[in-house]
Write a protein that binds this DNA or RNA. Structure first.
Lengths: 273, 273
DNA sequence: CGGCGGCTTGAGGTTGGTCAAGGCATGTGG
DNA sequence: CCACATGCCTTGACCAACCTCAAGCCGCCG
């Protein structure tokens, strides 16, 4: 089935409609559809949610740690970071939240939030109350299946993040961070083949990968000196993708080989019970 | 509803049956039931899976990175660690896998594994093929709701792990690691109020929290010197739980305040009618 | 009894944090 | 249009935290 067709069938005002919920073009739909194919009914179920816009200005919190949660938030446009603040004044950035992400999924299912999310530019998003979210999952199995995959990707990204900080050298961490950010943006159509633009400061990057901002600066300079990347202002170019890959041991979650299993395609593994 | 009753009604040979699937005493059931109340039909659905035992000897892999996955594994007894190995010879331990856990959930939903899991003692577990897993989730909404909570807890534990390694001082990391391990074991009845026993070496702990084994030794000595913990062989005692909590800024995922919102109260859980 | 895995302790060197100063954009108000 | 403030990047100097290497010890098990 062609997703673009159903898109057009849903658009209220046809191709030119600009205020209407142009559902199939939404990065969230792009992402889910890339994991599990959605049909017209799925899109119809999502339409009311994705039609309600909410804008959080740059620098304002979207969710705040230890406050009661009011639902989940689907990001339409704009970037945010999720972080935890410690009593010693340090900050750990857990990740960049990009269009198509759900802020705090699955972590916002708890009664009170475990993280804070703040926009690093104006963020346009949709709030979905917990029970509305439940209703949709119940009614549309394809959507809940896709969300299970979202959770799996999320867990794998977090695991890789731990590995970065715990056991990789700073230059490898930074390379990995840049590759992962690029891959995620690419999956929702927000990056070209080898460059992307995100308003991340070196301090945010340091708080993400466990370095001081001054060391991020030195390590980034090193990557540039070796001709692996270039950056100016907020745009990063990956000049030598292969070099970066082997430096960072990066393995993309988004390659087609990692897609959901089909029944009946299992293979035996050596040294396996 | 009394879960113990349904346990007895399921035990094939009554109270004395030792080989039979004594479902309600299984740590996996204990854990799910603590998140979302299960009924007799849920237990019946789980019985065939939990009746099939499989033992992996100490030191053998349960799953291996980059090999094709054959399903997920529910741990009945014994401990394992999950880790990633890097080309520079370093190892990052992502976590301790304890009875009641699912090895690689949700990460093992990928076609090939992203981590390796190895038993650190003999591990007794149950393999569940992907499609069988899917069938049960579909048939038993309470189980899939509980699994969503499992995924949420998993994500939060990983996030906290990142924070540990990235921004906490070594002594705080170790304190946090011990508190978290204790809380998780406690939730499945494998720890007393202030002590637990796990065959973790100092090297494994170091690989988990991003320190060398010799530094783990020094930091552990420091915790002992301050009267916060004691350890001998493989048993750890938390001598000053409050002191450890404030040192580590630990917030338990398992406190009753963080429990799932009950259906029918303000919020509902996906797939819950 | 010998071997081995894991714990303990020491010495020394590097990495990466901290502090500090300066530069360069961008934005704002006079 | 300039003066100034602000935020972020850049660079240098210094030093401590933590890693590495190494040796010795202990308890367990074959």
């Amino acid at each position: 089935m062609d997703i673009r067709r159903s898109a057009h069938s849903l658009a209220k005002d046809g191709v030119g409609g600009k205020a209407g919920p142009y559902v199939a073009d939404h990065p969230f739909v792009t992402r889910l559809n890339g994991l599990v194919p959605l049909d017209d009914n799925d899109l119809t179920a999502l339409a009311p949610i994705l039609g309600r816009n909410l804008v959080v200005k740059k620098g304002r919190d979207i969710v705040r740690e230890s406050y009661v949660t009011r639902g989940i938030y689907i990001v339409k446009a704009g970037f945010a970071i999720r972080y935890k603040l410690l009593h010693n004044g340090k900050r750990q950035v857990l990740g960049l939240t990009i269009p198509g992400d759900i802020v705090g999924f699955p972590a916002s299912l708890f009664k009170t939030a475990f993280i804070t999310a703040v926009g690093i530019e104006n963020v346009s998003l949709h709030r979905v109350a917990h029970d509305e979210f439940a209703t949709i999952c119940l009614a549309r199995p394809a959507i809940s299946a896709a969300l299970l995959w979202v959770a799996a990707c999320e867990a794998e990204i977090l695991a890789e993040h731990i590995t970065d900080i715990g056991r990789r050298a700073p230059i490898e961490r930074l390379a990995h961070f840049l590759l992962e950010t690029h891959a995620r943006l690419r999956a929702v159509g927000l990056a070209s083949a080898s460059s992307f633009e995100v308003p991340l400061t070196q301090e945010m990057i340091g708080d993400a990968i466990g370095l001081s901002s001054t060391h991020v600066n030195r390590v980034l300079a090193e990557l540039k000196r070796e001709g692996l990347v270039s950056s100016q202002k907020r745009t990063f170019k990956l000049l030598d993708v292969d070099g970066l890959h082997s430096l960072a041991e990066f393995r993309s979650l988004f390659s087609s080989q990692e897609r959901p299993l089909r029944p009946g395609s299992e293979v035996r593994i050596p040294n396996q019970p």
